[in-house]
Design a protein around this nucleic acid. Structure first.
Length: 259
DNA sequence: ATGGCTATATGTTATAGA
């Protein structure tokens, strides 16, 4: 089963590039972030026509996550628990049943800039809530994939110019420590489990020729529970998507599971 | 790099992104 995460940066602007990638990459599951659309505005037909079941958790203008799946999605949950007052659409869960049941979490972790400040406080609080939810899900001891735009550069080798990010919410020590606390619950980060070398990125800024200069960062991750890590066959980054017409500033990252 | 581009809605400007 091929499972991908892709921050599309707006479904209205990305319908063409997204469907072209789906037709070429043919993932069984695609976890999408930044749909920037309300649920009623999401063009479900584009994906249902291609054989996908569609679940969305959107809001007006910003944020928003979605799951596309060739297999039915069950027990869908929207929103990250732990703060009833949080209205930002950044978290969706569902179970997909293939050879065995697999729990999926699609997430768009807050950017957090500028730091310090209220947006950074929200990022850290959100990560604490995510850790609590992840611990609950791990207790089920079933295959679990938490994938999305983490807005975290885990290590210096995950940035072309790490020195440019030292004051940034994506790379501050406190951000990376919060990320490691989640990882250390027992997750395997799929890409690093298979590729130890530097120079692999999932985001290039639209500005300043970042793509042309390969000035990227790796911030889109798939975290696997032990039961899912046991099934990991392969992981990759679809870098070519950044070179297409009207691209997102992120590219898809995918795994192949023996499930 | 002092935000150089892109997307959306609040819409000929503001807000957010990373």
């Amino acid at each position: 089963m091929k499972i991908a995460t892709f921050n599309i940066n707006g479904i209205k602007a990305r319908a063409e590039a997204l469907t072209a990638w789906l037709d070429a990459a043919r993932p069984d599951v695609a976890l999408l972030q930044e749909i920037k659309s309300v649920d009623e505005g999401f063009p479900r037909d584009l994906f249902e026509d291609r054989g996908y079941f569609v679940e969305t958790h959107g809001q007006k203008g910003f944020n928003g996550v979605a799951i596309l799946s060739k297999l039915p999605l069950e027990d869908v949950e929207r929103g990250l628990p732990g703060d009833e007052g949080d209205e930002q659409a950044r978290w969706i869960e569902a179970t997909v049943v293939g050879a065995s049941a697999l729990r999926l979490c699609g997430l768009y972790l807050p950017n957090g800039n500028p730091a310090p400040g209220p947006k950074y406080d929200y990022k850290l609080a959100w990560m604490a809530r995510m850790k609590a939810r992840a611990a609950d899900l791990l207790a089920a001891e079933m295959p679990l994939v938490m994938a999305g735009d983490y807005n975290i550069i885990p290590q210096p080798e995950d940035a072309a110019r790490p020195e440019a990010w030292t004051e940034d919410a994506l790379f501050l020590p406190e951000s990376r420590a919060a990320y490691r606390r989640i990882l250390n619950l027992g997750f395997t980060e799929a890409f690093r489990a298979r590729e130890p070398r530097p120079g692999h990125y999932s985001f290039w800024d639209y500005q300043a020729g970042a793509w042309e200069r390969n000035n990227g960062i790796r911030i889109d991750h798939l975290l696997l529970s032990p039961q899912a890590a046991d099934l990991l066959m392969d992981c990759g980054i679809d870098k070519a998507a950044r070179a297409g017409d009207k691209p997102s500033d992120h590219v898809p990252v995918w795994i192949e599971l023996a499930a």
